[in-house]
């Protein structure tokens, strides 16, 4: 079950905690993984760890031309994409009253527009192959909202709406489009929280622990697999029970 031998997967934001875990998990399931991010040294380190079946492709997704160029490069080196994982994203949190247009736009550009551009480019090859998997990493806050994250929550909610629309457009071509919405995952970002906020956070998670990047990666492997072929347009919430939607 859930083997991905012979498949080519592109993972954006592979320098981050969740992205690297997704790359490891897809690679472990047999896929060739194209890893991208802004920090070339970290991509090289991950590639060295994984060994064979790796394509390193540094890119800055804030650049409007980067997504198409990235897909082209990966397809030239590895063949048409089977799996796209839109994982790259960043936050620029502040209350809306203080949020400038640039703060709003920068988050929307990378967290929502770049995934759209990547999907548009990747779909060409997937439609021809009559198979493909697009999995976008959203967030629980895209569904629940979160004070201080109007930009980020809007982008993540946007990924869900975009995925549902794409899913309907390409369903007859064997391509599925889904979303994984993580809750609070232990990363450098959540490590920065103080003791007080951390305790308060844990009290809201029925399982009593933060998620791990591997918890998220496992959901991505499932949605990327042949076995999930009848699952499309869905959002899989992986959040320790924090929100049951």
């Amino acid at each position: 079950m859930f083997r991905l031998d012979g498949k080519v997967a592109l993972i954006t934001g592979a320098t981050g905690g969740i992205g690297a875990a997704v790359a490891r998990a897809l690679h472990g399931a047999g896929a060739t993984v194209a890893i991208t991010g802004r920090r070339a040294a970290e991509l090289d380190a991950l590639a060295a760890e994984l060994g064979e079946r790796v394509i390193v492709a540094p890119a800055d997704l804030a650049d409007p031309a980067a997504p198409a160029a990235l897909v082209e490069k990966v397809e030239k080196e590895g063949g048409a994409l089977d799996i796209l994982v839109n994982n790259a994203g960043f936050t620029r949190d502040m209350l809306a009253l203080r949020m400038g247009d640039a703060d709003w736009q920068a988050v929307l550009d990378v967290d929502l527009t770049a995934p759209f551009r990547l999907a548009r480019s990747a779909l060409r090859g997937m439609m021809k192959k009559r198979s493909g998997r697009i999995v976008s990493i959203a967030s629980i806050v895209g569904v629940t909202g979160n004070a201080g994250q109007a930009n980020y929550a809007a982008a993540k909610a946007g990924l869900i709406g975009m995925s549902k629309s794409l899913a309907q457009e390409v369903a007859t071509r064997g391509v599925t489009v889904n979303v994984v919405a993580p809750g609070f995952v232990k990363t450098a970002m959540t490590d920065a929280l103080g003791e007080g906020p951390r305790t308060a956070l844990l009290a809201r998670i029925p399982t009593g622990r933060m998620g791990t990047p591997e918890d998220i990666a496992a959901a991505v492997v499932y949605l990327a697999s042949a076995e999930a072929g009848w699952v499309t347009g869905q959002t899989l919430h992986v959040n320790g029970g924090m929100a049951m939607i």
């Binding site: 060409r124 439609m127 457009e169 390409v170 007859t172 071509r173």
Partner: peptide, 11 residues
């Protein structure tokens, strides 16, 4: 053809 077919044809 459906609408998606026509887009694919054009491509």
């Amino acid at each position: 053809a459906d609408s998606l077919d026509t887009v694919e044809l054009v491509m």
